[in-house]
Design a protein around this nucleic acid. Structure first.
Lengths: 333, 333
DNA sequence: ACCTTGCGAGAAAGCGGTTTCTCGCGGCAC
DNA sequence: GTGCCGCGAGAAACCGCTTTCTCGCAAGGT
């Protein structure tokens, strides 16, 4: 490897141009008010020496890094990837970069990870579904400016962008009900996950309005493999339709059922949640609740931007999922 | 929003513990050799004041940020997401974070983006398929330590991790040939993309060994939409099999053909490239060249780690794709 | 001719750490 | 009793940049 670069410093440029570092700084930042010839000389020196200010030193002096953190449970999840991709693009337009981290290997460290990464930047977009409400409320103060994702109702002066899981799962259940299904099974997510809680409550509300429906809940997970693993239990449940925690689980479940010779939607209907890009290309195409992940990223940046500028968090928003009926659901046999 | 936090500084801890900042620094970094009681007092003060050193200030003093950049053409591409996810996990184990950026909105700025983001951190993992060889060679020096992805052969003292597109596409073509296909069409990627060049050369090499095969090349792209858009042209080509630039294009193409009433693999066989997680769940499941993206991320970190430690870039590695035969290919009618 | 203004630009003090250099002090050898 | 050594810990320089403070100097007013 080539010897590590030693970048030219502002002092060198100053010496080269025969001015003080202060002047170079002013010229570089457009705050220079003196003679144009001096500015020109500084610019020429900077050019010649291939100078560009150290973001680190600037950050220290200015107290701002032009970087924001993005922390989610699992970067491998396409839903979060969609948010990240759009957040990164939005931030880039304002000259900000995004620092990423996930807590998949150590769920209990959500707070520690967020705290650590937050110190490296100006603000944080956090999705911490497993952090207890009380702990989160306390953490918000230290993490601010912060945009919280998927924690509807947690309040406490943070900007909040969430998905109405309750409504989404309700819609899915209504859809299945309308098709004629009366025995449902819910393939749950992580039991400690807040968003799983909202789904459960949504289903409970649905059940309250439909006395003729029975619902069984099966422990599931968040990944394709989790879905595949629960296929046998779903078949054993005798249900005619399964609501999966998310699209990944649904896809895994469908293929797991396929391996057991159970056809979808012939024998069992299956629904997902998220509408990841591949939901529509799955075989059969997945009926799901569509979540506007890109919009979430864009809005997250907007909030972030106003917060960093010293603005208020603004109102919480609860994105309404849109029922996306595809081929994985059909009337029961 | 709550007033912006003012973190406690090392000076405050020093004052509180009745020692000098130097001592606090030494204690915090385990370089303290004096009386244990002093260290204990410092630790207690740090605890009380909830002190943690500013990574920014540390970075400036130490000349290291414990951050690496990850720059790719498009963060929305699942292939890159897989690499990022695994890179981030690997880096995290060593206490490093990953800063991301993509150049999808301004392909010509690949170099500018890489240069800018590189200054914020210690090293960079770069995938810049559209950057001219000469420009890249020149840039490497400024960007080092750098791990280059998908630029086999570019050398110049950078660590290089690549996919053997040439071999991969060759395998796919051989597979189609073995099935009996003689009229092929290649749905190309961006013409300025280096990896598209390797694929073209791979196909040319294949053709040289099979005089009875005709190959047409169609302009395509990189996304599902690009694949869908080219469906009509593929049908019009009269070919019995199509090799798509990547899995996304293949998936789009398959569904585009479906809309035109052309069945896959009944009427036309289709292959992809990458083996993204959804390739196997597509309908029909996609025959493709499987690329070890997670492994790429892990290895990228390994290289990075040794480079940052002052080590040598090591040998270039060319990952061999594995032919993954699924349901999207079959003998021609 | 003298005192203000005002402007252009440098000196220096941070930002929050790390690290080299220095120094006081107690213990040991002679 | 004196000199030297070593240890513990503080003073100060430094990382690279920003910004307030300061100052010299030329212009303008009386």
């Amino acid at each position: 490897m080539a010897a590590r670069q030693r970048r030219t410093t502002i002092a060198e440029v100053a010496a080269h141009a025969g001015v003080s570092p202060a002047t170079v700084s002013r010229v570089m930042n457009g705050r220079f008010v003196g003679e144009e010839s001096v500015a020109e000389r500084v610019r020429a020196s900077a050019q010649t020496l291939d100078y560009s200010p150290s973001p680190l030193a600037r950050g220290l002096a200015l107290g701002t890094t032009r970087t924001v953190a993005f922390v989610v449970p699992d970067l491998a999840n396409p839903a979060f990837q969609a948010v990240l991709s759009s957040l990164s693009k939005s931030a880039a337009r304002s000259g900000y970069r995004v620092l990423v981290a996930d807590s998949v290997e150590t769920p209990s460290d959500e707070l520690a990870i967020a705290t650590e990464i937050r110190r490296r930047c100006d603000a944080i977009v956090l999705c911490a579904p497993r952090m207890p409400d009380a702990q989160l409320a306390e953490a918000i103060e230290n993490l601010a400016p912060i945009v919280l994702i998927n924690r509807p109702g947690t309040g406490h002066g943070a900007a909040m962008l969430s998905i109405d899981y309750h409504a989404g799962v309700h819609q899915l259940a209504e859809h299945l009900y309308a098709l004629g299904h009366r025995r449902l099974v819910y393939v749950a997510g992580p039991t400690t996950s807040a968003s799983d809680g909202y789904r459960r409550r949504g289903l409970k509300a649905f059940l309250a309005g439909h006395e003729d429906v029975t619902l069984e809940t099966l422990p599931g997970g968040v990944s394709v493999d989790d879905g595949r693993a629960v296929a046998e239990a779903v078949r054993g449940s005798g249900a005619t339709a399964a609501l999966a925690f998310n699209d990944l689980v649904a896809i895994g479940l469908i293929h797991g059922l396929g391996e057991l010779g159970v056809s979808v939607p012939g024998d069992v209907s299956v629904t997902g949640f998220d509408d990841i890009p591949y939901a529509r290309y799955n075989s059969p195409a997945l009926t799901t609740a569509s979540v506007p992940h890109e919009e979430l990223g864009v809005q997250a940046w907007d909030r972030m931007d106003t917060l960093v500028g010293g603005g208020e968090p603004g109102h919480s928003v609860l994105f309404q999922p849109r029922l996306e009926v595809r081929a994985s659901t059909a009337p029961p046999r």
